[in-house]
């Protein structure tokens, strides 16, 4: 058995496809190829796939990661890429396939690019907001109890530009234990400036490990 990691972009229309739907969709695409997928051996046998980090509905991404298991050890990663490219829709671009370097659990940060349609109006207040070191938001836990959730300590650098519209590039804690969804950060911001946010689009551009190495 051979583990391979597929890197791809999820753009445009595909932002309407939720994580759960993506799972089902990927299996169907894989089944249209000749890739020798490994099937689980349980009572309900199914093709094994695993996504490194779920992506919220409505977000695009330039760096999505999906792990597969192949039954043929000699099947090349290049062929996996080629087979997948043959079936994927326009807005799902396969970047490459490699043998995994890190465990999916080692993802610690994600980089997002957020484009506001604000004519640059948010630039100053956002800069001031992100500069403070006590950003927090009330967040419901699984039991439904609201708790103060600190965000400041989960921001690992940002870059704010104004090219007519405000653009925020920000690195946030990500992964199964310590995750910050940019939507949550922006909720905190909206509460802070006490106004409704204009439309914004979110693109996840990279995943990193604890040591800020690109996740491979």
């Amino acid at each position: 058995m051979k583990n391979v990691r597929v890197f791809y972009r999820k753009k445009s229309l595909l932002k309407f496809v939720s994580h759960l739907d993506m799972n089902r969709f990927m299996v169907r695409m894989l089944r249209q190829t000749n890739i020798p997928l490994w099937y689980t051996e349980g009572f309900n046998s199914h093709a094994y796939i695993n996504f490194a980090l779920p992506l919220s509905l409505g977000f695009e991404s330039d760096y999505e990661v999906m792990d597969l298991k192949l039954t043929d050890d000699n099947y090349s990663t290049l062929t996996v890429t080629k087979e997948l490219k043959g079936v994927m829709p326009k807005f799902l671009e396969i970047i490459k396939t490699e043998e995994p370097v890190f465990k999916t659990g080692s993802i610690a940060f994600a980089k997002f690019e957020i484009n506001f349609e604000d004519n640059g109006k948010l630039y100053n207040s956002l800069k001031e907001f992100l500069g403070s070191n006590n950003i927090s938001v009330l967040k419901k836990n699984k039991k439904g109890i609201e708790k103060e959730f600190s965000i400041s300590d989960k921001i690992n650098g940002f870059e704010l530009t104004n090219n007519g519209n405000t653009v925020l590039k920000i690195i946030l804690a990500a992964g199964s234990t310590n995750n910050v969804n940019p939507a949550l950060l922006l909720t905190a911001f909206a509460q802070h400036v006490k106004c409704e946010l204009p439309f914004y689009s979110v693109n996840r551009t990279m995943l990193y490990t604890e040591n800020m190495e690109e996740f491979k």
Partner: peptide
């Protein structure tokens, strides 16, 4: 469920 209206399916 915006996927109802997006089109572009396989």
């Amino acid at each position: 469920k915006p996927g109802r209206y997006s089109g572009g399916e396989i």
